[in-house]
Design a protein around this nucleic acid. Structure first.
Length: 267
DNA sequence: AGATCTACAGGATTTACACC
DNA sequence: GGTGTAAATCCTGTAGATCT
């Protein structure tokens, strides 16, 4: 029951803001290029830095926190190609390619900027402006081409690309403590820890004695309390940092938990 | 301006029940 | 036992109003 969301397979991003931060769930393997600007990406304790002309690969099923920096007076530009499971399955069947042994060490990779990749990206350009005008089969071929180039230039990725396993039942306590700041829904946490929604909630209750959302909010409010009292942050800076989406709800929840409004706690 | 409160839709949790 | 589903209930996220 992996929830397939509709996202374009070939994506051109362009940001002019001073620096943009965010967090994102990466559902599919992706390969791409930073055209101008720089980006920092944190995935599972690892930090990746990419800038102009760097090719990169990211493994699927990961939570990432990123910051994009446009060059002085310019825009951050990048291209990424989403490699979905369907296409990988068909390549696996067609060319009899299979994973030898699972490689979980690779979360992301800087790829060598060779001629194959450069020419491939050049050939992608026509696909970027005409929105949905392109035949799906044509786009699928381009994604397929990307996979073949990756296999040719970076053979170790074979054990990542053709790893079709779903996330196993991993240690819930460790995973949640490492990733609770990601403001993603419970369904996703359940999938990423290898459980159905029902089992996830039951296991969660056993370990933490709280339902997932209550525990998440307690954790986040705890962090907020620390930042407000020890670090002297303003509540308008804190609420996003700890994973709340809205200042009004943050102050409401905070007051309910600590008995006073966040702006009064630090004093 | 930032901070707080209120009301409501939709998402999350609880409860109950069927399956193996 | 452990597991998935459905309905009722509860709660969070959100917009807009109000306060400081």
């Amino acid at each position: 029951m992996s929830n397939q969301e509709k996202r374009p397979k070939i994506l051109y991003s362009c940001y002019a803001q001073k620096s943009s931060e965010g967090e994102q769930f990466i559902p599919n393997h992706s390969v791409g290029l930073v055209i101008t600007g720089a980006s920092e990406i944190f995935i599972g304790g690892e930090k990746f830095v990419f800038s102009d002309g760097d090719f990169r690969f990211f493994r699927r099923n990961q939570l990432a926190r990123y910051t994009k920096y446009p060059p002085a007076g310019g825009e951050f530009k990048s291209i990424s190609i989403n490699i979905d499971q369907e296409i990988l399955h068909s390549i696996s069947n067609e060319y009899d390619l299979h994973m030898q042994k699972p490689n979980h060490d690779i979360k992301g990779l800087a790829l060598e900027a060779n001629g194959l990749l450069k020419n491939y990206i050049d050939s992608i350009w026509p696909y970027l402006d005409g929105n949905n005008e392109f035949n799906q089969a044509l786009i699928d071929l381009k994604v397929k081409e990307a996979v073949m180039i990756l296999l040719q230039t970076t053979p170790i990725l074979k054990d990542v690309l053709f790893d079709f396993s779903e996330p196993g039942k991993i240690d819930l306590e460790a995973y949640m403590n490492a990733n609770y700041k990601f403001n993603v829904d419970i369904n996703r946490f359940a999938y990423l820890t290898g459980r159905s929604l029902a089992t996830f909630k039951r296991d969660f209750e056993k370990i933490f004695n709280l339902s997932p959302n209550r525990w998440l909010q307690k954790k986040r409010l705890n962090d907020a309390y620390y930042l407000l009292t020890e670090k002297g942050w303003k509540s308008s800076d804190v609420y996003l940092e700890v994973g709340f989406k809205d200042l009004s709800h943050f102050s409401f929840a905070f007051k309910k938990a600590y008995g006073m409004a966040p702006s009064r706690v630090g004093i």
